[in-house]
Design a protein around this nucleic acid. Structure first.
Ligand SMILES: [Mn+2]
Ligand SMILES: [Mn+2]
Ligand SMILES: [Zn+2]
Ligand SMILES: [Zn+2]
Lengths: 138, 138
DNA sequence: GATGATAATGAGAAATCTTCTCATTATCAT
DNA sequence: ATGATAATGAGAAGATTTCTCATTATCATC
């Protein structure tokens, strides 16, 4: 249940928080703060955009969601399943695919070690065109 | 000479363009539009921030510079040497290191192929702490 | 279940980064 | 040198995100 996750994060169980977390779980994909805001409005919820931004940032700090900064426009958020992964983004239709490549992950560690960096996080996003007919070719 | 690069891009040789390109070449590293603007002002140039943004975007389109979207804050620009590379960024001091790993590059191709994507571009940024004493640890 | 200290919310203002508009000025082919 | 056209600079405006603060909700305690 979402309520336990919220409580564990040291946050009070409020309607906006439950609605936002439930929506992200139900949706499963990548949503911007404004996406979340609009969907909840359409569902008849009373919520403020500032609250959505605030809560998503709190959820991120609590490890409940992950923020992705794809190029251009807004950040998007997704449930933190615990399994790190990277992304492919279609420049035409916006479709997002996920992948995890242990070879890449290991190489990153080696590179950081060689250059004296302690890795805290990383972001690998491949931009291109997906295989849908209307997206193919430049 | 910068002038030829600008001309080849189909752009007129103007003082702002020459100054911006020269500064990026001289500096060698990663500069935000505002960095460029402030440095040129300090050097006594008369230039507008809008021009800096406009010109950097034109240079990017022309393949003269590359834009990097590191998380938080402004985009930064660097001369496009033609050699693609990725980045490590220190979260404490902002230091940026560059690297190129052919293993990672090849794996990305394989992943895109498997998922039906045609790669147009990619961004790999490793965030962490560099080996300077004041940056080490958390 | 009622009470109250405290945290959370929502609306709008504001901050931040970037692009746009448009009158003025510079470039460059002729 | 001239003129068509492109570029510039200042400020307005757009886009995204955060902040402020008065009002409201939560929840530990009674
Ligand atoms: Mn994802
Ligand atoms: Mn670089
Ligand atoms: Zn697509
Ligand atoms: Zn550092």
């Amino acid at each position: 249940m979402e309520n336990q996750d919220i409580k564990k994060a040291g946050l009070k169980i409020t309607l906006p928080r439950v609605k936002i977390l439930t929506l992200l779980e139900k949706h499963g994909g990548h949503l911007s703060a404004e996406d979340v805001y609009k969907i909840l409005l359409e569902e008849g919820e009373e919520i403020g955009l500032a609250t959505v931004y605030r809560v998503l940032t709190q959820f991120e700090a609590a490890g409940l969601v992950v923020r992705q900064n794809f190029e251009g426009g807004q950040s998007v958020f997704e449930i933190d399943s615990g399994d790190h992964h990277d992304h492919l983004v279609c420049l035409k239709c916006g479709k997002v695919e996920e992948f995890l490549d242990t070879t890449i992950e290991k190489r990153q560690e080696a590179i950081a070690r060689k250059l004296g960096f302690t890795i805290k996080d990383h972001a690998l996003v491949i931009y291109g065109y997906c295989d849908k007919p209307e997206c193919n070719q430049d």
